[in-house]
Design a protein around this nucleic acid. Sequence first.
DNA 1: CCCATATAGTATGACACCAAACTATTGAAG
DNA 2: CTTCAATAGTTTGGTGTCATACTATATGGG
Lengths: 158, 158
Amino acid sequence: MSEPRPDASPEPSDEARLFTLFNEIGIIQQLSGTAFERVLPHGLTQAQFTVLNHCVRLGDNKTPAQLASAFQVTRGTLTSTLQRLEAKGFIEIVPDAKDGRSKRVLLTASGHAAAAACIAAAAPILTRAREALSRDEVERLLPLLTKLRVWLDENRSL
Amino acid sequence: MSEPRPDASPEPSDEARLFTLFNEIGIIQQLSGTAFERVLPHGLTQAQFTVLNHCVRLGDNKTPAQLASAFQVTRGTLTSTLQRLEAKGFIEIVPDAKDGRSKRVLLTASGHAAAAACIAAAAPILTRAREALSRDEVERLLPLLTKLRVWLDENRSL
DNA sequence: CCCATATAGTATGACACCAAACTATTGAAG
DNA sequence: CTTCAATAGTTTGGTGTCATACTATATGGG
């Protein structure tokens, strides 16, 4: 939950502007996330799609720990997402041959198809979202967001 | 959950860039949100702080429905957040005199103090976060994010 | 070889969130 | 005045997320 237009004091401090920035990001994430989820097939969620999409684009046969690290979530969070995906038949989780502690996540044919269906379902709303920002605005926004994301990632301890 | 650097195809479509943008926003929200929550006093959460902060800045005596609309969450979500805040003694929820269906949310003295404590607790990490982006970068980022947020808000149906 | 430490995965409990269903009250149309 | 649709708030069930604690397996140093 975040707050809109944290308003206009006469001359907001740098910290206040940053706070506003995080508020805006919170709302954007919430609105875009639920809009996206509403169109996904098979009752898939954003989290579940992210796993499928990762496997499609970057290959499967990763360990849960690798995936958790890639998505910046805890291993516990990923455990439950993987369990739901396995229940839907979209992935298979097998023991790692080399390391008795590890497992490997494999995309099934059905999971591959589901990922494609998600992308197809999302295309119309992404196209529609191009009304929101021009191509140029997106290109101005992205490097700054990436910079912020990288900083946060590197300063996770605080 | 979101994915980092959705990678580099030779020439990504506008839609793909937008998708990347939403991914970055998702990660930023997740990392900044948990960092913020870790420093909040009284076991307060981001959602709970947002309510207190709203009351401090924009006045209390709002209805839950008004707050839910301001924060872009469902009434059901707000119900539970308000219940937790009331249990902590930071707000009081009273019936509305005019409308038998409505209630009014009032900030207690203790709630006022808690909001101030949150802001004090957050100040160091906001100061630290100024390393992430220059003042100028924040000012370039904010209008674009606001534009995107407003568009999403106005196109909630899809 | 044994033990201390690190790592992988899991389980639990708490919170936020949504969607959908439900109750109670209001208000307007007939 | 009655009825019906809209609104306020709540409840339930499912998901994601974290923090914490737990088990099992590796690995490295005596």
